[in-house]
Design a protein around this nucleic acid. Structure first.
Lengths: 194, 194, 194, 194
DNA sequence: CATGAATGAGCATTCATTCAT
DNA sequence: AATGAATGAATGCTCATTCAT
């Protein structure tokens, strides 16, 4: 559906604002429409249903994540460095858009199982990025040769995600980007003494 | 209220089953009552309202988590070993009760922000347990002296949680307990080559 | 049912207090039982159901009204004087028991149509008293010979009742008994210039 | 809200019918909607909640009372005559709409204290009308100069209301309008012999 | 007589979606 | 394309009454 029309983006941006400011369960379609400056019915010219707004929202924003990060790590030599930049970039993007941070880390998690499964599909792209970095690191000898790729990916993602979520739940009152470096160290070196 | 009455536990167990099998939003009070073999009104002799059932559920079960794990690591000498046992025990308890796993990893996350905040309060006990182990590890020289305690805790919890959630979303079709050892290695040693 | 047992009166008095202080719709049987110092089930040893409590309450209290007033007007010579004493006594009894005033003038009116019909039956005794006075007044030549007895009775009762209700709705903050004399004058002489 | 839309009146009229025929406590919103020929949800486009329907109902109908009566007494010379016309008109309007009579005299009284207070606010307009007539009567010398205005108003209203209520409780099986003249005589001349 | 735990029917309100204009 | 009035399904909770003890 008409992804190129200006109202498509307009509605998604409205959804981010409404959800961030009122919470997932208070984000009625009529409210999103009002925020977007369109009639309720107009929403349905651009989205199949409410769920479609949320998926599209996540798709657009997560796509931006992957795109941005891919761009940044393109020229970098080592996997270790790439991992650092990824964490940095991830935290940076969230820090720059507090509404988006609230929506992706807190509110969208309240969606039902089916929606969350579909959101996971969208996450695929991001997880693949992690996989690529990890694979490269193993190949280059930076990471241990016996690394379980899936576990490593879940560790990296789970850690980044938990730290971002805690930051949002604490109302973003400390610097998230400052945490990138120590988090990276933990991921690469573990908590044990080398 | 009336925590010692048999019906208190009966209702909580019914809630776990109903939520696991039908999903959070399909877990009507009347359904829980039916599953528990009591009348709808009886629920309200033991719980203030529906939310109270869910909080109590989480409280009871997470309390069991902390209790069990504390018990198991009591006699263990090193923090590293304790961390391993914690991960093992965590995965073991989830593996033993597939309904509980679904409820805690997927369904309860759909609750509203207020309920999630109250659930987080209950989680405190578990996070404290992690803190204790990490602190002990630093003191004993097993873990790096410059470890950021909060980050380390979030790394440990985020990783365990992500791996458990992925396992549930994949319909628990592989062994979760088998992952305890490699996960522990990742947490302690990181993904980098030592 | 056991009208002579102390608990019968105990429960009725409890009902008056609970209804006056919490309102008709907040006067649950369990609350009345608690106030009376008995178990919920005990209520049903003395009353058929909740409605029966209210009817009995009204019966007892209105019986006291009729009894008291009959007693007072017994020795009085003229119907005009009797009417005055009736109004005075009516206002006096209400003034003496603010709980009772609230219950009879405001709260009990919220009962359903059926209950109100049965309450009207109880009122019969009071209305008969008015009828007697009016009839006597006509016979003695004090009142007009063409007086429509039913209308006269409704005028007297409607007036007394409205004035008492207004007084209760105004939180009883002026003297009701002071109004007896002017009300009596209005009833006997009308508002027109004689 | 939206008082000019045809559905506003449609719903109020439906409420009168449903309440009159089924009783206050059996007047579910869904029943009113059905009677009005609209969906349940439509009710809430025109009224804030159920209570708002009842208040609006009373407001509209009582407004009609005051309006009609004001209109009729405008050209009349004496306060005595105005009082007669007011009673006549009051009884006439109730006689013409038996449903409305049941609702205002019996059913709406079952509402809770808060709603009754708000209904009383609406009654103000009617009571003011009585006040004006009484004041005029005193000024013109038709009524006694020492008339207590508040008491007189309560006497007039209490009498009219009691007579109307009794008529409704007797299932409206005699002519209410026939009573206007004798009631008026009683109010003006009292029951005493002049 | 007395208890009080258990029962279960009943209802106002919200909001995603449609469709006539 | 755009509108927004209308729709109608779906559910947590209360409380009078019972009855086993």
């Amino acid at each position: 559906m008409n992804k190129n029309r200006p109202k498509y983006k307009q509605i998604i941006d409205a959804a981010v604002i409404v959800i961030a400011e009122n919470g997932y369960h208070q984000a009625q379609v009529s409210r999103i429409a009002k925020q977007a400056g369109v009639a309720d019915g107009t929403i349905y010219l651009y989205f199949k249903n409410k769920e479609d707004i949320l998926i599209s929202l996540f798709h657009e924003k997560m796509g931006y994540f992957v795109e941005k990060i891919e761009e940044e790590i393109k020229g970098i030599d080592t996997a270790t460095q790439k991992l650092l930049v990824m964490v940095e970039k991830h935290f940076e993007i969230l820090s720059e858009d507090r509404h988006l941070a609230i929506v992706t880390q807190l509110e969208l998690r309240q969606s039902n199982k089916e929606l969350r499964h579909r959101i996971n599909d969208v996450l695929r792209g991001y997880l693949n990025l992690i996989d690529e970095i990890m694979t490269e690191g193993i190949a280059s000898g930076e990471f241990r040769p016996d690394l379980n790729l899936r576990l490593a990916r879940q560790t990296v993602f789970g850690t980044i995600d938990e730290i971002a979520t805690t930051w949002v739940m604490n109302e973003q009152k400390y610097s998230l980007t400052d945490l990138a470096k120590p988090v990276h160290e933990l991921l690469v070196g573990g908590c044990g003494k080398s």
